[in-house]
């Protein structure tokens, strides 16, 4: 087949909603876009362990501690599936880590915000995982097979995470006055960053059109953001919390909630590295990696010694 006919074959698979598999021919830009997106997603899971990990040793009950620990462990598992999916595109995990540690690769900027109170564990589960699910459910049908299959597993666990976050918020909102105050304070701090999780407005999102064509993306940033606002307003009502945006208003004509202006300059600054915890997050990962080097070296050396001994036995 000529390059031209390879391209036609690829296009026809995309058009017929057939998945692309690792050994199929794919355009270079498709491969690059996927590596960028999947590795960013994997990094987000790994960096995302840190703000919640911050409360594991301080969880207010043994049950909450066990659930939180299991949740953060799930995130490590998600990172693992996603790194593996990205590896099928011809990049190694070490190289992806290197891109993360040197600041070349991005991750979801929401994790650059601090977790200041226990209520943040509720708000993260409810809002951040809620927003992540909206982004991720369509990816279960994304065109690249290994990514789509990884996302099926990820989404199942994420919906459990979201429920546990909502349940923390519900318990707080039914609790004492100070607990309701904790819940409202966390909601106020996490609301706007959660809206930013869907990425820049469509007009400023240069990759959207091509990604929709490739079925790497199924909905635009603004479509998903609107859906998230509509759902969350109703949930906040159940919790008895006040929306942290005075411009929230039902728009009969659109059939959606209108909402206030997002501070995009804050968003771009956090992406650029000026968020409250950007440096601490990367530093924590780099420290774990650097201090783990002797452990990884030892495991490798031991495996080689074993292999050598086994072949000696065989030879004898």
């Amino acid at each position: 087949m000529s390059v031209h006919s390879f391209q036609e074959h690829f296009d026809s698979l995309i058009d017929r909603d057939v998945t692309i598999e690792p050994k199929d021919w794919m355009p270079d830009d498709y491969r690059k876009t996927l590596i960028r997106q999947i590795s960013q997603h994997a990094h987000s899971e790994i960096i995302g362990m840190l703000p919640e990990g911050n409360w594991i040793t301080r969880a207010p009950s043994l049950r909450r501690k066990a659930v939180l620990l299991a949740k953060v462990q799930d995130e490590a598992g998600h990172g693992l599936y996603l790194y593996s999916a990205a590896e099928t595109l011809g990049i190694s995990r070490d190289e992806m880590y290197n891109q993360l540690h040197t600041g070349k690769a991005k991750y979801s900027s929401i994790f650059n915000y601090p977790t200041l109170t226990w209520a943040d564990m509720g708000a993260i589960g409810w809002l951040v995982d809620g927003a992540a699910i909206m982004n991720q459910v369509p990816l279960c049908r994304t065109s690249y097979g290994p990514y789509a299959r990884a996302m099926v597993r990820v989404c199942k666990e994420e919906s459990f995470h979201q429920r546990q976050g909502f349940e923390i918020m519900l318990t707080l909102s039914k609790g004492t006055e100070i607990q309701r105050k904790l819940a409202q304070d966390a909601f106020n701090r996490w609301w706007w960053p959660s809206l930013m999780m869907f990425g820049p407005p469509d007009a400023e999102s240069p990759n959207t059109e091509q990604s929709v064509r490739w079925r790497i993306k199924r909905f635009t940033n603004d479509e998903l953001r609107q859906k998230f606002v509509d759902v969350t307003v109703e949930q906040a009502r159940v919790l008895g919390l006040e929306m942290p945006d005075k411009d929230i208003k039902w728009n009969e004509e659109r059939g959606h909630y209108d909402f206030g202006k997002i501070n995009w300059s804050e968003f771009y600054n956090v992406v650029k590295g000026n968020g409250p915890c950007n440096k601490q997050r990367i530093e924590a990962r780099r420290k774990a990696w650097d201090e783990g080097k002797w452990v990884r070296d030892a495991a490798m050396a031991h495996a080689e010694k074993r292999k050598a001994r086994q072949s000696e036995v065989k030879a004898a």
Binding site: L50, I56, G292
Partner: peptide, 25 residues
């Protein structure tokens, strides 16, 4: 549980957290 998120190898981070969960249970 203090290791969670800070392990030297991702697979070992998961394994050690499993053990922490066993003890906690």
């Amino acid at each position: 549980s203090e290791w969670c998120g800070h392990g030297p190898i991702l697979e070992q981070d998961i394994a050690l957290t499993n053990t922490a969960l066993d003890h906690l249970g």
